[in-house]
Amino acid sequence: MTVVNATSIDEVVDALRRLPQARLLQGGTDVMVEINLNRAGAGDVIALRQVSELRRWYVDEESRTLHLGAGVPYAELERSPLCNLLPALAEAARTVGSPQIRAAGSLGGNLGTCSPAGDGLPVLSAYDAMVHLRNADGSRQMSIHDFMVGVKRNASAADELITGISMQLTRGFQGYAKVGTRNAMVISVASACLVHDSERGSIRVAFGAVAPTIVRARNAEAWLAENVELVGAIDVSGRLAREFGERAATECTPIDDHRSTAAYRRHAVSVLAERLLLRAATPNTTGNRAS
């Protein structure tokens, strides 16, 4: 077993070419759990913690696009200034594990693992984020919807590094809500992210832990757009919000497992979607207007 402590993206992709079977290690909150369980099977590791390029982020003001390095830890996403640009991502980050896990864990690792319960992923889906990939031959980008292909499976190649994610910033309410058995240190039973783009007039909703990968409730989104004016402040009745939640829940394919049942999960996402839509329609919901 070899450990490469890379210090730049170039070094990482070069090492990946030499060691295509190597595992990338960012915060280690998924990888080390596995290595601790199974001491022998670690293989070669390329560590990213010293690659400062992966920790950077910036906003392209002209296109209002946020570029987020894959290694930015949750602890930074939940704090200012990023929490003001992406309140829903900050809310999702705050639900991950514990402070110790959030100091180490990253969106790059969440994408690499690609669990259907990964808390960052519904937000990236609701944002139609682009995933930026790089190998020794060059770089490419891919829609998050094409990137996530199944339970713990993503579309990147073995020699590719996720360098970052980009998202077009929106104005309007956005929120993330998660159901679990307690507040801290809990893998999601069901989760939802809703983003209102009040300028372009759309509402996007994505669910976690209710299908092999993150679900976008596109039919419910289209139904809502037909029934509600979505540019500017929105006006939604309680009845309409409930129907939106029920329609959205039918687009999920949850399962029974040790954490919950399919029926409960479907009910939970219906309530989460209804609740988030009502929040989006409440003027001055504090803290959740992207700026």
């Binding site: 402590n5 080390m32 759990v33 290595i35 601790n36 110790q100 100091a103 180490a104």
Partner: peptide, 28 residues
Amino acid sequence: EQGECGSCTVVMDGEAVCACLVMAATAV
């Protein structure tokens, strides 16, 4: 040894982290 209990908490570059989830050879 899976990040759940916090009994291995140390401070690394100013942040509290679980020592069981840090690969020592990468913390040089």
